[in-house]
Amino acid sequence: MHPAPSLIIFTTLSGLGFGLLAWLGAGALVPTGWVGFVFYALGYGLAGAGLVTSAAHLGHPERALKAFTQWRTSWLSREAVLSVGALLLMAPHAAGSVFFATPLPVFGWLGAVFCVATVFATSMIYAQIRAVPRWHHWTTPALFLAFALSGGALLSGQITAAALLLALLAVVMVLHWHFGDRRLAEAGSTPETATGLGFMGRVRLFEPPHTGANYLLREMVHVVGRKHAVKLRVIALLGAAVLPALVLAALPASHLAAGLAIALHGVGLMASRWLFFAEAEHVVGLYYGRR
């Protein structure tokens, strides 16, 4: 799949933002006044920036409001509804904390639940797609949730929780690659099943239907990004999980240590999300002799 920058930025920023808001809503940290303003501005800013970036991926962003209507069937619509719900439900808690030094835990907890549900809905947009076997697996929601919760813990300064969640994240990342590398074979889709011609012999593309590019090839048969997959996996694992955990364990708690851990986590998160798209094989590639 094409690792579109708008999708990578959207899913990483909104994941971090909703992760941070979930920790704030759950009352792990109850900042008030200006400190509270900075935390909530960061949470709302990240989540909001992610949602605005996602609109940039649309061909017709002016019709985006229609995407709130089909929550009964569509995970993308559910994500839209849940994300706005999370931001609205969290608002009384945030405003109470920042302006009146009066947190409203009921709204905080409700908002936190909606934040986690939003991240889950985002992950299900990908996990529901059977035509991309690597995504169509429980490790996809696990990966998105582990990233959001560990990133949120880092941003909200939950050192113990962050260290534990980063360890969990490392395990989930490895599992996602471990199962992911086998998913296409397990799905059983081959050029033979794609054409139905397996009963005659081995099937190979003889001549493509068009000599130029097209939407399908650009969007779904993106193979260039896989060239440095192994190196990127190492960068993702070290950056997102291992090094931040070591920083938290080795350095005394300070803004500098937290900033370093968050920066490393961000680099690893970007690398991981790039691979999430670039390594995902869409079965339509079988019609083009590519994976």
């Binding site: 050029p191 005659m200 012999g201 099937v203 190979r204 593309l205 003889f206 239907p209 068009h210």
Partner: peptide, 10 residues
């Protein structure tokens, strides 16, 4: 669109 495939039996 029309693809063309080569099928090779054993």
């Amino acid at each position: 669109r029309v693809h063309s495939f080569e099928v090779t039996p054993d």
